[in-house]
């Protein structure tokens, strides 16, 4: 569970990015954080990854206050958070396989496990045949899928996506969000910061809207514009074992169905 408790953040320049915000994200929930540029979305992401520390309040993950965490433990926290960025942030000199594998190498996973899991995860995102290619040889959508594969390969408790469709066309945006949705269906908490109204409207999940650093809306099942709050659903429980094999099989079934339809 993620909890923001009276969190306020003012940068050294004097800009007050967040003003005493508070909300709770249940395990397995899918949350959109929307708002205009400068509303505080990126600051919220930075607080979750401990890139910044709040001046007031607390940020808790599973009851542990990460806003007071010692600097040397921050990498271990980030290993439980899969980050997805607008600009993909893949390492250009590594292949697709290596970009995903190094996330496992960093946590000290044995070589055998890496060689077994990475191809499965790449199958899940539909890029198994492009393992040896470099990021520059892929399309934007494919690069973002590699980023998603890297984010999920260590089975994190939270996927945090900061404008994941910002550099993508509508078609690719939809497939990326479908992928995030399927990850969430398996029990991983997903938080997406975006100002892409189309994906928010289509998916109709919980929406927190920020404006000038304050929460102005928190709707359980909503679109980008104001909508009446509907009763929320109980989020799926997170399974104990990584469901990568099932996800890969489902991805292959979906790919085969698309071929038949075509």
């Amino acid at each position: 569970m993620i909890e923001f408790r009276g969190v306020g953040m003012t940068y050294p320049s004097g800009i007050e990015a967040l003003k005493e915000i508070g909300f709770v994200v249940d395990p397995g929930e899918f949350l959109f954080v929307i708002g205009r540029s400068g509303s505080g979305k990126s600051t919220l992401v930075k607080l979750l990854t401990c890139e910044e520390r709040p001046n007031r309040g607390n940020v808790l993950i599973d009851g542990y206050d990460i806003s007071r965490i010692e600097r040397r433990y921050v990498p271990y926290l980030r290993r439980n958070i899969g980050m997805i960025f607008q600009d993909f942030r893949l390492i250009e000199t590594k292949s697709v396989y290596e970009n995903v594998a190094f996330a496992m190498e960093i946590v000290g996973a044995p070589g055998k496990l890496i060689r077994r899991r990475v191809p499965i995860v790449l199958s899940t995102v539909g890029l198994k045949d492009k393992s040896d290619m470099r990021p520059s040889e892929l399309s934007g959508g494919e690069q973002q899928r590699v980023a998603i594969a890297r984010a999920m390969v260590n089975n994190p408790m939270l996927i945090l996506a900061d404008e994941p469709t910002g550099n993508l066309d509508p078609g690719n945006s939809e497939s990326i969000m479908a992928l995030l949705d399927s990850i969430n269906q398996r029990g991983t908490t997903v938080i997406v910061c975006t100002h892409d109204s189309s994906v928010v409207d289509k998916m109709r999940r919980r929406v927190i809207e920020l404006e000038a650093g304050r929460i102005v809306r928190d709707d359980r099942r909503s679109g980008y514009g104001t909508a009446p709050e509907l009763p929320g659903e109980t989020p799926a429980e997170q399974p104990e074992e990584p469901p990568f094999e099932e996800m890969a099989e489902e991805a292959e079934r979906r790919a085969a169905q698309e071929k038949v339809d075509a």
Binding site: P75, R79, M83, T93, A103, I106
Partner: peptide, 16 residues
């Protein structure tokens, strides 16, 4: 530098 920052986001320690 960019590669280093990406490694930090993914959870690499300073020693790694």
């Amino acid at each position: 530098a960019e590669e280093i920052s990406i490694m930090k986001y993914v959870g690499a320690t300073n020693l790694y």
